[in-house]
Nucleic acid binder design. Sequence first.
DNA 1: GTCTATAGTGCGATAGAC
DNA 2: GTCTATCGCACTATAGAC
Lengths: 195, 195
Amino acid sequence: MPIHSNQPKNKKQQLLDAALTLFVNQGIYATSTASIAKTAGVATGTLFHHFPSKEVLVLELYKKIKQDFVLQIAPFKLEVTQLEQQTKVIWQQAIDWALANADQQNFCLLVMQYQPLSAQTKAQIFADEFSFLKEIILFGQQHQLIANYPIELMLESAHGQFLTSSQFFINNTELAQEAKYSEAAFKLFWKSFTN
Amino acid sequence: MPIHSNQPKNKKQQLLDAALTLFVNQGIYATSTASIAKTAGVATGTLFHHFPSKEVLVLELYKKIKQDFVLQIAPFKLEVTQLEQQTKVIWQQAIDWALANADQQNFCLLVMQYQPLSAQTKAQIFADEFSFLKEIILFGQQHQLIANYPIELMLESAHGQFLTSSQFFINNTELAQEAKYSEAAFKLFWKSFTN
DNA sequence: GTCTATAGTGCGATAGAC
DNA sequence: GTCTATCGCACTATAGAC
């Protein structure tokens, strides 16, 4: 650790933190690099020293967040007799992460609509993020627990349902604690896939 | 009809048409009023004669599109013995409209993330647009055909599933013709709600 | 109603001192 | 690595002639 380390970690992290807050409150387009620098308490030149462009800043922030999300999803050895229960645990871990990291979750939604990032970039991120989901669906189909619909459609549907439910609970945090709501959200998800 | 009517309808409509195309190809923020006017073949001053601001232009375009969408959804007298079939017809009408009006559908998605419009404005639009959906769910619940989950959650879920499926088919138009895919999309939707 | 011309603003990014 | 200062550009919106 350097002797002269200041109380706030490093300026790069301060910039990422400030950017996240501003992005989710104002949108990515509406947030200027100058305002990010000002909020972070650094100069605009410093921002462009750490990130060659605003676009790169957005992408780097996104990747860090998704890395954190994937770590919250504990891996399983899938069991035929336990598949619904195992899926429920994973679903709840994902929802809990979204609730505890509402800014991060909202930012990911914004990035999906942020047009300066290519569709290819987004598709790659999506595939990485939800590889565990594909395993569950294929495993369930092999054992006749999950319907044999086309896998691409099912992946999109599952992702969409997760986004919808997590957004609902983020916008209505008091309902996330009620079993009636959290049970219903998972059942809506699970029943759509069952045979 | 005025004697001096030009071949292109009126300039206001030309502006709306140009705006739609540019918005879905570049995003709303990334599209300048100047480029809309240029594409429409009119001057920037003319744009601001018809729309007091870019924001109003966006909202007016959005309302026109949603009006058109709602007209495509034929009303039904809901019947207990026919509910699944009736819902399927409505679902397919909605998907077909989205496919035939991909630009319009994509634009609606962009508007939902366009932050200059207030959350209240968007919520109002959502309620208007999907009132028929609420009727179906409540009717189905009364007759024990549809699960008794909280109605707000079900409405969000239904809307999300429609957006996911229509986006999937817009991005993979060749699959929309295959019964395997279109049947699966509806079943994913319907099964999630059934008792 | 439509045009041309432009005012006024704020942006992303760079240069160069320290 | 960080700063100050600023460039060059594109944007929304307006003014005023026709």
